[in-house]
Design a protein around this nucleic acid. Structure first.
Lengths: 348, 348
DNA sequence: AACGTTCCCGACATCGTTTGCGCAAATTAT
DNA sequence: ATAATTTGCGCAAACGATGTCGGGAACGTT
């Protein structure tokens, strides 16, 4: 069954049948004011010609494109690629196409992506902010155009929209408390840009756990940054030169967890004998690392699914405004060898 | 600097300046038949209104969209996400937007993605075939429409287009030879769908290495499939029950490598004492696994870059046909602990 | 003074589709 | 039988931009 090469338009059908394009258009969308017999003819002809409406023309007319745009920092990241899978699953089910853009953590490219998706007339936008983004005027613009917008993971407090996030506070609290309960007292926290909501929430969870257990919050154990491959090592050195060096590392991302693991090993710091290590990560190989890495798992797929559901709900019920809320998805603490106590290590 | 909410059109500029839309259009594209002074006025007004041409309207007119479509099996895969980064880097440099679609290894969805990108009027298409794809009529259609197409990684022999692939034969040959030279004799090969070009090339490389070293090719050591998380274990069991069980595993993908590692550990088979393990993978954490995993690294980023370059070359020199060729990018064998010889293990 | 050029610019059609309006024929109501 | 509806369909405008014409004004040429 060879696919036809030509692309037929509504005009071709009209010419073929000797009727007007308006009639064809209406017949195709099942308008009540078209003779059933005519409808049948049109349908049959469209089928025969393998007619497909031109979405570009539809978009020009301003109607729905049944496509949603997804803009996120980077795809080469387990959290985000799993989130995309969640998004696609829902979107596909509900008859939407997904168009993915990467901001590459650049504000400039994020703005360009927003413009691009607006002008390509997506029906709604799903976004996770780049780490450079602090001004959200480009998103306010989206809202002003009445295009539904849902933020996930990296969200902004300045925007009154539906947001879907992991329970960052709870996850950070659990991780920190676990480290404390396994005997650690000087817990370093390696995290990303301080202005991001997830950073603040995780820091708050970390701090709350310290306070609950009567430990001092020491700003000098916190490090912010966009850690490239070669930046983690120097930072670890710096921390270990501290007069009271850390006995545990709590990292805020996939990349940081692996970077930290690598840096610690290169420096001959044994995990967990010398220092504990726990990450906020979605690495599916965490269990196979040496040592197996304790993690706070974010339900990436679920976050994507929920975000997509909320967005499509908004798109389809555009008239009556849906309530705006922030959905918090629970995280899960998985304890592996990288945070064992010294006594547990000895037992092995 | 708040971004303007309104989207202005060429008409708005025309009205503002009291001239016709045609003049505005021509002024904007610098036509020689427009008074420099008028041009200046138009430019200034466009700047002031932050005018952006509507790509939808441009697409309807049939002009270039400066967007390229990328269709690949799945993003949650190191190889593909790195390839995308390579593609984006080049595309961005040369002024193109990238629109990503996932086929999720489904033929049906691949066809839908192709149609979607055609009707969204991308200037060219970059593809890696889904594992279900054997019929390529939908791509022939793309070619017939004169839309430039470049295939990468998962390519089809039935299509006369530019292809960019890793040196799969060479990589598989090197991996297999390395296993043989480290004393292995019964090398199992876990690979993906047999009809894919990459599968065949890797199998051929494997086979050639066996022959070179006078080892028998044993079909019963080969396993094909789309291995889900729970399928690798049973397959390993089956192989190990063999009258002459394998002493090494050579896997053809990221997922297989990790799945195999997991299965072997669960079965208490020590690597590399009991069996060697080497993967065809792009895992950036391969070095931190237990044991560190020997791999054949495919230059994913480079493959993406080269593919994007070829595609854009084709798009921009559409008139004179560019030569069609298959570009082969070298792979690299990285030897780590998972393929050490027994004597090497003892030394530690 | 009458003609041909050149320079700028506007009217209009076009891409594929939807939609408001109107009009004729067929049907129903009076 | 005539008037009032209903039915079925076509015309034309619109979406935003481009491109083909062609026309008016200001020149220069005989």
């Amino acid at each position: 069954m060879p696919l036809p090469v030509e692309t037929y338009t509504i005009k071709d059908i009209a010419r073929e049948l000797g009727i007007s394009t308006s009639t064809v258009s209406r017949a195709l969308r099942g308008s009540y004011e078209i003779n059933p017999e005519t409808k049948r003819l049109v349908m049959e002809c469209a089928e025969r010609l393998n007619y497909r409406p031109n979405p570009i023309a539809l978009s020009l007319k301003g109607s729905a494109s049944r496509a949603i745009g997804v803009i996120l920092p980077q795809i080469a990241n387990y959290f985000f690629s799993q989130a995309i899978n969640g998004i696609e699953a829902i979107a596909y089910n509900r008859g939407y196409h997904v168009i993915i853009f990467q901001s590459q953590e650049s504000y400039e490219r994020e703005v360009a992506n927003v413009q691009q998706s607006m002008s390509r007339k997506v029906d709604g936008l799903l976004m996770s902010l780049s780490s450079e983004t602090s001004d959200v005027a480009h998103l306010q613009e989206v809202l002003d155009k009445n295009v539904p917008l849902v933020l996930f993971d990296r969200v902004s407090a300045d925007l009154n929209v539906t947001k879907v996030v992991a329970d960052n506070f709870g996850g950070a609290f659990a991780a920190t408390e676990h480290l404390i309960q396994s005997g650690r007292r000087r817990i370093a926290h390696l995290t990303i840009q301080p202005w991001l909501s997830i950073t603040q929430e995780r820091l708050a969870g970390y701090r709350a756990a310290l306070e609950k257990h009567g430990l001092e919050f020491d700003e000098s154990l916190i490090r912010y940054g966009t850690f490239g491959p070669d930046e983690v090592g120097p930072m670890v050195d710096e921390l270990m030169r501290h007069s009271a060096p850390p006995d545990a590392f709590f990292t805020a991302s996939d990349r940081l967890a692996v970077g930290c693991l690598q840096a610690l090993r290169q420096r001959n710091l044994h995990i967990p004998e010398d220092v504990s290590l726990i990450g906020f990560t979605n690495l599916n190989v965490a269990d196979f690392l040496a040592p197996p890495l304790s993690t706070v798992v974010q339900p990436a797929t679920e976050i994507g699914q929920v975000a997509a559901e909320r967005l499509i709900d908004q798109i389809e019920r555009k008239h009556r405004a849906l309530p705006i809320e922030t959905v918090k998805i629970p995280t899960e603490l998985i304890v592996r060898s990288s945070t064992m106590t010294s006594s547990e290590v000895v037992k092995l």
